[in-house]
Amino acid sequence: MKNFPRSFKRNAGVSAAMLGVSALLLSGCGAAPDEEGSSAEGATDFLGCMVSDSGGFDDNSFNESTYNGLMKAKDDLKIETKEAESQSETDFTPNLDSMVQANCDLTITVGYLLADATKATAEANPDLNFAIVDDQSIEADNVKPIIYDTAQAAFLAGYVAAGSTQTGKVATYGGLDIPTVTIFMDGFDQGVKYYNEQNGTDVAVLGMDSFTGSFDDVSAGKTTTQNFLNEGADIIMPVAGPVGAGTIDAVVAANASGKDAKVIWVDSDGYETLSSGNEVILTSVMKLMGEAVEDVISTDVDDKFDNTPYIGTLENGGVALAPFHDQEANVPDEVKTSVEDIKEKIISGEITVESDSSPK
């Protein structure tokens, strides 16, 4: 894409933006960015913007991690920022249009579900840049995908789960049946199977076809987890954003009644981000979204934006397995040693982790 001067981009008249403002006012749903935005002392003439998925920026998951990257870029790069939280999918387009009206130099959209709205807005505004987290379906000069091969880190989590279970049963479930969810589940399942192959065991994975149908129904997460616990699973990995809080609640309650169950969190280090229930977190499958977001913003600040996808892997540190924290003593030493060896074998290609949802 041709990198136009900031002044040109900021002053370009965009009819779609005016329509977007009207739509936003009529909808009354999306949280529009602050009128003045926020800026750091000595800010550059660059406006970095962000639109969340419906989980909001306090979801203890991918929205929050991405938002933290924007805030770090604000501090480190001295840029101006604006953000809009989506309460539902109907807010995506109005929120994006409001960013166009603000003449954002770069707008980052958070999540696979924003793909259609992002594509339409980017096509209507070729002089503005966009990036989207967790989607690579958009082919446009002004859209940069930020995607992650989370199956790699989830493979390690599956191995840890299989090597740490006391019941011989572990479980996972998703919020929605979409690629950015199933990629975690696929990697987890393969990691358990690899453990079985290497150790002559038969640890079972429950829930591979289980989805709650949303990212916000916490009660569904609790019920789903209770069902897994009743079936004998003692380690559960929810891939469901805020719905995962229901898993934490169910496991904490079960442990208070005598069980010894644990949770594997996703996207962020749940031990660090959750306000309660941290003690039941065995580990987390992390996507280091904040680092990627700041890097993409920095590139655009330097007028070096391109649409080449950023792909987070174990090799470049874009995905990782979190520390075991309070659960350190509950993970056998031989499992810890094997996980480090497996990580290197995945990086070298000796072990191949495959998912239909893996970045291509």
Rank of each mutant, 00 (worst) to 15 (best):
N255F: 14
S257E: 15
G258W: 15
G258D: 12
G258M: 13
K259A: 15
D260P: 09
D260I: 13
A261L: 14
K262T: 10
V263M: 14
V263A: 12
I264T: 02
W265V: 07
W265A: 05
D267A: 13
S268G: 07
S268P: 07
G270Y: 03
L274E: 01
L274N: 02
L274F: 06
S276V: 08
G277S: 03
N278M: 07
E279K: 12
V285S: 01
V285M: 03
V285P: 00
M286S: 03
M289G: 05
G290M: 09
G290S: 09
G290C: 08
E291P: 07
A292L: 05
V293K: 00
V293Y: 00
D295T: 13
V296Y: 00
S298T: 11
S298G: 13
S298R: 06
V301L: 00
V301P: 00
D302N: 04
D303S: 12
D306V: 03
T308E: 06
P309A: 04
P309D: 01
P309K: 02
Y310K: 08
I311Y: 03
G312M: 00
G312L: 02
N316H: 05
G318Y: 01
G318T: 03
V319I: 05
A320R: 07
L321W: 01
L321D: 01
L321S: 04
L321N: 01
F324K: 09
H325R: 10
A329E: 11
A329K: 13
N330H: 12
V331F: 12
P332A: 15
P332S: 14
V335L: 14
K336W: 14
K336D: 12
